[in-house]
């Protein structure tokens, strides 16, 4: 393979996709990082301001309450989605005649975008449940869950779990069926109980599925936007804004491009750090298993 053909190959196969990738992803990313150190107002910047934008962001009390709300959301949704998804995967792989049908149903919410799902559940929480509760005398749903910060949080969790568990279920199913039958047969012959087989054989052998699913839910939690916007819209009084929506509002609704972008950079650092820690820990657990 001589040099000329090497270059020609690059031009033919790689130049266009890499150029688009650089233009759409790399350049705005670097530019965004750079702009946080200037007095950028969305159009122009005239001078460097050092860490002023970051300092201002960190002094914003709403940013801190958003961060707390986001972390709580990430943690709770991570645990809930994975617990439910793993349960569904066990159920679907239990060799019932109706397994495939169940799997089909569990996966359906995942096909629909978060906005449409959020809006459907807005109707359920605001209208359907309130109307049913009024007739049946259920005090739990008497007033809409979306009207109160605490219940709105749980509404967000319910919708998120309902939406994402089907996807993670598929990952767990793939993990479960990749376990060799001889191993399970041996455990059965040895008289291991179902729970013990699950805990000491199945789960360690499919540790990789947990790594992937935890990573995806962690990342998804930090980036959640659609369901947030469509279900609670951040309300009541901006108390249920997740970080993604907070950044959007800061920049595009209030025109604070400098702090908006520096919060976005902080968000990136958080996502990257959390994902790195999670993958490192998971890989270590995988290696021990």
């Amino acid at each position: 393979m001589h040099h000329g053909s090497q270059l020609k190959r690059f031009l033919l196969f790689a130049l266009i996709p890499l150029a688009i990738f650089a233009a759409v992803l790399i350049y705005p990313f670097i530019q965004g990082l750079y702009l946080t150190f200037t007095n950028w107002d969305g159009f122009a910047h005239t001078k460097y301001v050092g860490f002023a934008n970051y300092a201002k962001s960190l002094k914003d009390p709403e940013f801190w309450s958003t961060l707390r709300f986001t972390l709580k959301y990430v943690l709770v949704s991570l645990v809930a989605i994975n617990a439910v998804a793993f349960g569904l995967a066990l159920l679907v792989t239990a060799k019932l005649k109706s397994s495939n049908l169940f799997r089909t149903f569990f996966f359906v919410p995942n096909l629909i975008g978060g906005v449409v799902l959020g809006v459907i559940w807005q109707f359920i929480f605001n209208t359907a449940l309130v109307s049913i509760a009024g007739k049946m005398g259920w005090s739990l749903f008497e007033s809409s869950w979306l009207g109160d910060t605490n219940t709105a949080f749980w509404a967000l969790i319910i919708v998120t779990v309902w939406q994402s568990s089907g996807y993670m279920m598929i990952i767990y199913i793939t993990g479960l069926i990749s376990i060799e039958q001889d191993v399970l047969e041996a455990a059965r012959v040895d008289g291991a109980s179902a729970a013990r087989t699950l805990w000491t054989i199945k789960m360690p052998l499919m540790a990789q599925a947990f790594t992937i699913s935890l990573f995806l839910t962690l990342r998804g939690g930090f980036m959640a936007y659609d369901v947030n916007v469509a279900l609670t819209g951040g309300g009541p009084f901006r108390t249920t804004e997740l970080i993604s929506m907070h950044i959007f509002q800061d920049a595009f609704a209030f025109g604070n491009f400098g702090t908006g972008q520096s919060k976005a950079v902080l968000m990136f650092i958080m996502v990257a750090t959390a994902a790195l820690i999670q993958v490192t820990v998971s890989k270590r657990v995988e290696a021990r298993a």
């Binding site: 990313f29 965004g32 980036m223 970080i243 950044i247 959007f248 908006g260 996502v271």
Partner: peptide, 10 residues
């Protein structure tokens, strides 16, 4: 790993 939000403003 880069979230779209990290670059949507610029």
């Amino acid at each position: 790993i880069v979230p779209f939000q990290a670059l949507m403003i610029p």
